[in-house]
């Protein structure tokens, strides 16, 4: 009885644990994986640096406070205030871009969205692939287009790092418009393609963190909770087994 019981439970739990990782990743269907690791503090710090140098000019993180970034990323108040905070906000205030909303609408056709929750709404894979898929397109108002998010309003903010990509189109055949087959680097940037992939991965990691700052705490607490519950369940089973002895004997 015990064996049957325990093996059934072990099997159920085993199946469950195997399926959880499949559900743990957030979104981004059909896109190559970003391969982020939100527990990699160095990657988070590099991503934060990129965000505050290249993104915060237009995009806010209205749910994220500078002080929280400092404590979660292991940075001092000084480091954050002098290296990351270019908006002039106080340490305890959230990250709000200075771009005037009206001008943004005139320049880009729409207001740059807040990115606090972008990784949860669209997925880290989307962010990573989007940042790698800009190409020059003179037909667009700002001169840029994107294969992951066609006709995006945003010009490539990281072109200095990536260089300039151009699209290679397929031949147009009757009934089929010409489509973008692949992107090619026409002019190299300050980073090699590999370095740039790493940088955009860091940026995606940072946005994964901003979408859910609790992610760092929840996983480290979770291990202990699960271990505790496993022990508790085992003890409860022993109690049950003891109480039920006479039921099985008198059967």
């Amino acid at each position: 009885m015990i064996k049957r019981y325990l093996s059934a439970m072990a099997l159920a739990l085993g199946l469950f644990v195997v399926t959880v990782p499949a559900f743990a990743q957030e979104g981004g269907e059909g896109l190559p994986s970003a391969g982020t690791n939100v527990n990699d503090r160095a990657s988070l710090q590099r991503g934060a640096k990129l965000f505050f140098n290249y993104c915060v000019g237009c995009h806010s993180l209205k749910y994220v406070r500078y002080s929280r970034v400092a404590s979660d990323l292991g940075l001092s108040e000084d480091e954050v205030m002098s290296n990351l905070n270019f908006t002039g906000a106080k340490f305890g205030e959230p990250v709000i871009s200075h771009m005037p909303a009206d001008s943004a609408k005139t320049w880009f056709g729409k207001e740059p969205p807040d990115l606090s929750l972008e990784a949860r709404a669209k997925g880290v894979d989307f962010i990573f692939n989007y940042l790698n898929s800009f190409y020059l397109d003179p037909s667009r108002p700002v001169g840029w287009n994107n294969t992951v998010f066609p006709n995006a309003s945003m010009p490539n903010p990281l072109w200095e790092l990536q260089g300039l990509q151009v699209a290679v189109h397929s031949e147009a055949t009757p009934g089929h418009d010409s489509v973008v087959e692949k992107l090619e680097l026409s002019q190299p940037g300050r980073m090699t393609p590999e370095e740039f992939k790493g940088a955009t991965r860091d940026l995606a990691t940072f946005l994964e963190y901003t979408a859910e700052p609790a992610v760092l705490e929840r996983q480290s607490v979770g291990v202990w909770v699960v271990l505790f519950l496993a022990l508790l369940t085992f003890l409860l089973y022993l109690v049950k087994h003891e109480y039920w002895k006479d039921v099985h004997e008198n059967h």
Binding site: L13, F16, V20, A24, R218, Q219, G222, L232, T233, L236
Partner: peptide, 17 residues
Amino acid sequence: VGVGFFLLIAAFIIFFA
């Protein structure tokens, strides 16, 4: 016992997915 086992599964979801 069922409660313990159920909480174990719930904890996996709450903390990891």
